[in-house]
Structure formats: structure tokens, C-alpha cells
């Protein structure tokens, strides 16, 4: 009971928070984003419009590294809409390390001709506005965007995220079963994107291509809801 309470306490009232942000935001693009608002906390999942978001980055530290590509795809519990998907390759302020080229396959020459984040900010925020962002491991997408904007505009950004990795962790890393497993030194179940997908019999996709990962994340959320939640579950139970 105490645990449940403590979680409730941490849950942010995103609808309220976004309204407040709209009043203080200085950049017109960011203000326009906030003015679209966040859905009410008790909205059932079946009425929510989501947008799956994935970044490829130069490294893992939001304060030192930068975004190299963005993939996003809007969806609902019923359908994922490829025709409204977007993908950008960006020119990061950070130097592109060779190790990360190996991961996402975006080369130096591709990046040299690519625009800066500021040039795509308007369509990017337009695609996110009014939708609930879904990401696998929310710290990358939310914190990188916040940090990138802070550096460029002097103000950051915040928004609710449904984290599909967090949903897997709640299932497999918490509770008595997970505790027993850990107690006996068993390796915890992998909650990486492809391993999580496999548990729902979703097909294997080539990873580390921002748009494919975004679609993969959208499919994963549909599967997680089909298995563990219901279309009537409140969005507040999922977002962070």
C-alpha cells in the first residue's frame, strides 16, 4: 500500500504542468507546442493519439552529445500511420564519434549536408504537439531534446512520455517474482527493444534506424496494451 502511494506521489499532473509551461515559454515554437496541451490524466488509452519517437545520438550523455537523427510515427491503439511518419538526419554540434557511426550507420558525409535541429524544430514540434510521446527508454528522447533546445534557445522543453521499456521493467523487474529471481542471482529478463518485442511475437527488425525503431516502439506499445492493459486504462497509469 505504501508503495502504491509513493508512486502516486511521483506521478505528475501533466495536463496542469503543460498549461503552466505555456504561460512561461519564450520561444514561439515551444509556446505553440505547449498550447496544444496534454490530454487529461483520466483519458482512456483508446482515445489517445500517440507519437512514437526515436533519436539516434552521438553518445549517451545528453549534456555532451547531440542528436543525429529523428524518427517519429503517429499512432493510436488501432493503427500506426506510416504516411504521417517523419524522419530527419541532423548535423550535430557534437563531433560524431566513429563508434556511434558503427551503431546507427549515419556517416560524416551524410551529416555534413544535414540541417541543424533548429531548421526542423517547427515540423518536429508540430508532429509531437497534442500527442502523447512514446519512447523506449524515455531518458534519451526527452533529455536530449531538452538539452539540445537549452543549448540553442536558452530554454528547455518537457512533456509526458509513455516509456515502453519502463512498462517492461514494471512487469519483469518489479514485484515478488523479479525479486526472487534477483535473490537467486538469476540474470534479469532483458527489456531491450528487440527482446521485449520478441516476448509479444513481434518480428525482428534491423535496429538503430530512427524511423524503424519508432515504428517498432509503436508496435510494442500496441502489444503491451493488448496483453497487460485495456483500451479503457487511463493514460495516467502509463505516462511518466
Amino acid at each position: 500500500m505504501t508503495r502504491l502511494k509513493s508512486r502516486e506521489k511521483h506521478t505528475i499532473d501533466w495536463s496542469q504542468r503543460v498549461k503552466e509551461q505555456a504561460l512561461t515559454a519564450k520561444d514561439t515554437r515551444i509556446r505553440a507546442f505547449y498550447e496544444q496541451g496534454a490530454v487529461a490524466a483520466d483519458t482512456p488509452l483508446k482515445e489517445v493519439t500517440f507519437v512514437a519517437l526515436d533519436f539516434e545520438t552521438t553518445g549517451l550523455n545528453a549534456n555532451e552529445d547531440d542528436i543525429v537523427s529523428i524518427g517519429l510515427v503517429p499512432f493510436t491503439l488501432q493503427r500506426i500511420y506510416c504516411k504521417d511518419a517523419k524522419q530527419w538526419i541532423l548535423n550535430p554540434r557534437q563531433h560524431l564519434a566513429t563508434e556511434s557511426v558503427v551503431i546507427h550507420g549515419i556517416t560524416h558525409s551524410a551529416i555534413n549536408n544535414a540541417p541543424d535541429l533548429m531548421r526542423v524544430l517547427e515540423p518536429l514540434l508540430a508532429a509531437l504537439a497534442g500527442r502523447v510521446v512514446v519512447a523506449h527508454y524515455r531518458y534519451i528522447e526527452r533529455e536530449f531534446l531538452h538539452a539540445a533546445l537549452k543549448v540553442r534557445l536558452g530554454e528547455g522543453i518537457c512533456f509526458p512520455v509513455v516509456d515502453t521499456m519502463d512498462l517492461e521493467a514494471r512487469l519483469h523487474r518489479k514485484g515478488v517474482k523479479a525479486f526472487v529471481c534477483r535473490f537467486f542471482g538469476r540474470k534479469p529478463l532483458s527489456i531491450r527493444l528487440s527482446d521485449s518485442r520478441a516476448r509479444y511475437n513481434l518480428p525482428f527488425y534491423k535496429q538503430h534506424e530512427a524511423l524503424t525503431d519508432a515504428v517498432a516502439t509503436a508496435e510494442l506499445l500496441q502489444a503491451q496494451v493488448a496483453y497487460h492493459y485495456s483500451p479503457d486504462t487511463r493514460i495516467a497509469e502509463l505516462w511518466r
Binding site: C82, A218, A226, Y227
Partner: peptide, 14 residues
């Protein structure tokens, strides 16, 4: 065609 596709997941028996 791929750009127009919509995707959906169905659990077994649905």
C-alpha cells in the same frame, strides 16, 4: 506503398 501502410497488432484469438 510502404509510406501509406498502416500497422496494427492483434493478440492471438482476437
Amino acid at each position: 506503398i510502404a509510406q501509406q501502410v498502416e500497422i496494427a497488432y492483434y493478440r492471438a484469438d482476437s
